[in-house]
Design a protein around this nucleic acid. Structure first.
Length: 891
DNA sequence: ATTCTCACG
DNA sequence: ACGTACGTGAGAATA
């Protein structure tokens, strides 16, 4: 251990390359990031983000950002084409560079450049000096040239996809990536050349061959001493012919670690920003986010200026009379944790008239005055996360009513990405900074806790009320502007109320059935395990893809079909192809399947049965998906197995809550294709649905040119079905070929034929992409939006993905809209008829009911009726149903 | 915390 | 030529 307690840590940053990465990382935002004078600021902003990450991660005591001084360097003296032929730096970037330096100055970080040398040489020199002085050195760059500096004391970080993700190059990591040491990497580069720096290297030598050669010879010089001993080959000829290039490449690639850098390590001491200068700079750049951060940091040190001081009255049993009468209220219920089914209560805030009340004591809510108010539908309440509040109050035996505005739902509809469940976090997206996030106030994960200081917690609670008040009007205006008022008032708000009911209902689960399955599967797993160990010749963890990979691809020598970024892929897709080669593969597949069911479903579900009522209460996330679907968590009841018989057994554990009752299930038939037929207006597909044909068979008949549906073979139907699905996802020939195991060419023909037969579909797809490009978003039949900024991306993959999304989202999203309407109508109908039947689960296109014996006939009649009449499309909506004494039998 | 794998519509 | 199907959540291993 060094006796120096605070060991110096030196951080060196390659300013130009990081700025370059920063600029392109936020290139899509180029037009959004402009200050009042029209200066682009995206690179400055991203540069600062990178700095924040690195400063936090490294906590350096000394920092320097090195810049290139100009085009002419000692390297251009050796080779005048060095870095020649490069595209000019875009002006949008170069105009930002002086400001990055200005910001660095305000941040208290030294910038430096040296005539005739590159930033790399400055960094190399200082890294060497730092390491010699016993410091830990961290280098950050946007390209890999600097990785040659990696050593025991120097770690080189290279930005990865964006600027805030960094890949750490240590000597070990260099070895993994390139197979050579950091210094040998120079020799590798010498052989390969560097097209971006515009020097050639040896012909036909790329990373693979260069790595192999250097691993064998360790340096360019040594390689050429032994080149004569090599067997006659094209490579040998190329090496001999390229000798001068290789030697030149080595000179160019080598960083000069003894450059005449005048700054000393002592000059680099980092002691934090000049806050006033920095504030002025952020103001000039219009960086509201950083300004807010600055304000926050100020509070932490000064403690005198809190976020924003809120006015509030602490409510007790004795001053309830101070609550003014009003027909309008804002209410917030605080619980610690996401899972409001069990999260402990922390307090509440209530605004009536112009007064705001707060308390830690939720028992107060049960007091006559407050309970009445909360249950009075004539008192309109604004809340954040209606479903959470409803469920929470219900735990206190309060049946909330009159909630007419949920800020979370409104925000989600306006922009589905502005959906944080943390109010403080969400409002930052609307430039509202007077409320801290729960994360900041309570902390994270296990250590999260409600502040003990009343002034902190109550101010936070009152701040929530203020935030809801402040953002209600602008959000309502946006909803109106988007023509989403109907979606909000008649679909999303009522859906939240229905979901709260469903969550409270829960579905009854039979632990005995699950235990029985647990034993069965346990035995099967044990037997399979033994068998697999035998076949493999050793024991290993079958659940570990890494260990399994070693067994299959190294020990047994099976062909590697696919790799993941960390090793061999052992997915079903791969194993399916290896089944014939070794009997162990089938056993592994079977083991995997059973193990999945055992751990996720059998054990997982046993853990979440409520001991109080024997039911499973999932939570539906209403503001999560990009398309408007729900999702289900803790546990997820939307992915209960159905595709294999073993898996299906799980469904036998889901039972009615009444003796001799039924589980009744009703699902839409082909909703998404019906929606597609509707929105596209394609006459042929509409005709098929109107006539009541089997849609996949009908598609098969058309694309394979058969005379009647009766001629369709099962294979043809299967293929047509896959095409129909593909269409909904924004088809590609590659995807279809992979799915069907046919050639890409054949897949292409299927698609062409499909578009020929359903010309309206093709037109829809083109139009969907065009609309998204023009409007910037895709939209459902009920005006639900999904913004698609990537539709303008330059990168083909990114753009293509956005285009497929533009096709898929209106379809998936409209189907989700329809289901929500059906659920609302359904709950209304159940209430009207005073039935005891409960809606308990939704699985996207399917609803599950818990039905008492004597209500079955009624349910059989009304459920399909309500679902089929949810909306009026140009094609009929059909719902199929089934029932039984458990979910398994309800098909 | 991230990656892989696999369950569902 | 690019490298993909659309939308989710959870458990186990590994880092």
């Amino acid at each position: 251990m060094s006796k120096n307690m605070t060991k110096d840590k030196l951080l060196l940053i390659d300013g130009n390359s990081v700025a370059f990465r920063a600029f392109f990382a936020m290139y899509q935002q180029l037009d959004k990031f402009k200050n009042a004078e029209g200066l682009h600021t995206n690179a400055i902003y991203a540069f600062k983000n990178m700095l924040d990450v690195v400063l936090k991660q490294e906590a350096p005591t000394k920092v320097l950002v090195a810049f290139d001084a100009g085009k002419v360097t000692f390297r251009t003296g050796m080779y005048k084409e060095y870095k020649g032929g490069r595209d000019k730096t875009p002006v949008e970037l170069s105009e930002q560079l002086p400001y990055i330096r200005e910001m660095l100055k305000d941040l208290g970080i030294k910038s430096y450049e040296l005539v005739n040398y590159e930033a790399d040489d400055i960094i190399g020199t200082l890294a060497k000096r730092g390491a010699e002085a016993g410091m830990e050195v961290a280098v950050v760059s946007g390209d890999k040239d600097l990785t040659q500096l990696a050593s025991d004391h120097v770690t080189v970080y290279v930005t990865k996809s964006g600027v805030t993700k960094l890949e750490a190059f240590t000597p070990e990591h260099m070895k993994e990536v390139n197979g050579v040491t950091p210094t040998e990497f120079i020799d590798m580069k010498a052989l390969m050349g560097d097209p971006s720096d515009n020097y050639p290297g040896v012909a036909k030598v790329g990373p693979k061959i260069a790595s192999k050669l250097i691993q064998q010879y360790h340096s360019v010089e040594n390689l050429y001493e032994h080149v004569g001993e090599m067997k006659k080959s094209k490579l040998k000829e190329n090496l001999i012919a390229g000798k001068d290039n290789a030697l030149l490449g080595k000179k160019l690639a080598t960083i000069n670690c003894d450059s005449p850098v005048e700054v000393t390590l002592d000059d680099l001491t980092y002691s934090g920003p000049n806050v006033d200068d920095l504030r002025r700079f952020y103001e000039k750049m219009n960086f509201r986010r950083f300004l807010a951060d600055l304000a926050k940091a100020g509070e932490l040190t000064e403690e005198t200026t809190e976020v924003k001081k809120q006015e509030y009255t602490v409510l007790t049993a004795n001053n309830l009379g101070e609550i003014p009468d009003s027909d309008h209220a804002v209410f917030y219920l605080a619980m610690l944790g996401d899972n409001y089914h069990q999260a402990p209560f922390a307090g509440f805030a209530l605004a009536m008239g112009d007064k705001t009340f707060v308390s830690r004591d939720v028992a107060l809510l049960k007091e006559e005055k407050l309970k009445t108010l909360l249950e009075d539908k004539k008192v309109e309440k604004d809340v954040f996360d209606l479903k959470r509040v409803t469920y929470g109050l219900s735990r206190l035996d309060i049946q909330a009513a009159g909630m007419t505005f949920d800020l979370l739902l409104a925000s989600y509809l306006v922009d589905n990405e502005k959906n944080s469940n943390d109010l403080g976090e969400l409002v930052k997206g609307y430039d509202y900074f007077d409320l801290k996030s729960d994360l900041e106030v309570y902390g994270k994960g296990k250590s999260a806790k409600i502040p003990e200081a009343d002034e902190v917690f109550f101010n936070h609670l009152a701040g929530k009320i203020a935030a809801i008040k402040a953002l209600k009007a602008p959000l309502l205006a946006k909803l109106k502007d988007h023509e989403q008022d109907d979606l909000f008032d008649t679909i999303e708000m009522p859906t939240a109320k229905v979901l709260a009911k469903m969550e409270l209902n829960g579905i009854k689960a039979e632990p005995a059935k699950l235990k029985e399955l647990e034993d069965d599967f346990g035995e099967r797993l044990k037997a399979l395990e033994e068998k697999i160990y035998q076949e493999a010749g050793e024991k290993f963890n079958i659940n570990s893809p890494k260990q399994l990979g070693v067994i299959l691809f190294e020990k047994l020598g099976l062909p590697v079909i696919k790799k993941t970024k960390t090793g061999y892929s052992t997915s079903v897709e791969v194993l399916d192809q290896l089944k014939e080669k070794s009997p162990v593969v089938s056993d592994i597949l079977e083991y995997r399947q059973i193990a999945k069911i055992q751990s996720t479903y059998v054990k997982g579900l046993l853990d979440v049965i409520d001991p109080e009522d024997g039911k499973i209460h999932t939570r539906y996330l209403q503001t999560l998906t990009a398309t408007g679907r729900l999702s289900s968590v803790d546990p997820n009841l939307q992915n209960i197995p159905t595709r294999t018989e073993e898996g299906k057994q799980i469904r036998k554990a889901f039972v009615p809550s009444t003796p001799d009752g039924y589980i009744y299930s009703c699902d839409y038939s082909q909703v998404e294709l019906r929606v597609l037929a509707h929105v596209s207006g394609d006459a042929n597909m509409q005709e098929a649905f109107k006539t009541g044909y089997d849609i996949h068979a009908h598609t098969a008949m058309r694309i394979f040119h058969l005379n009647s549906i009766d001629e369709v073979t099962p294979l043809e139907r299967r293929r047509a079905k896959a095409v129909n699905f593909g269409i909904v996802y924004g088809i590609s020939d590659y995807g279809l070929s992979k799915n069907l195991g046919i050639s890409r060419k054949q897949a292409k023909e299927f698609i062409a034929e499909y578009f020929d037969q359903y010309p309206g579909i093709k037109a829809y797809m083109d139009q969907a992409v065009k609309d998204a490009r023009e409007k910037g978003y895709a939209e459902t039949i009920m005006h639900r939006r999904r913004y698609l900024p990537d539709i303008h991306a330059k990168n083909f993959n990114v753009r293509s993905f956005a285009e497929r999304t533009a096709i898929n989202s209106p379809i998936q999203g409209s189907a989700a809209d329809i289901m929500k309407i059906a659920m609302i109508n359904m709950q209304k109908k159940l209430d009207e008829l005073g039935l005891k039947t409960k809606m308990v689960v939704q699985v996207h296109d399917e609803l599950i009911f818990d039905v008492p014996k004597d209500e079955l006939e009624t349910v059989k009649k009304i459920v399909p009726e309500v679902m089929q009449s949810a909306v009026q499309l140009d094609v009929p909506l059909i719902a199929d149903s089934g029932y039984g004494h458990d979910w398994y039998d309800a098909k």
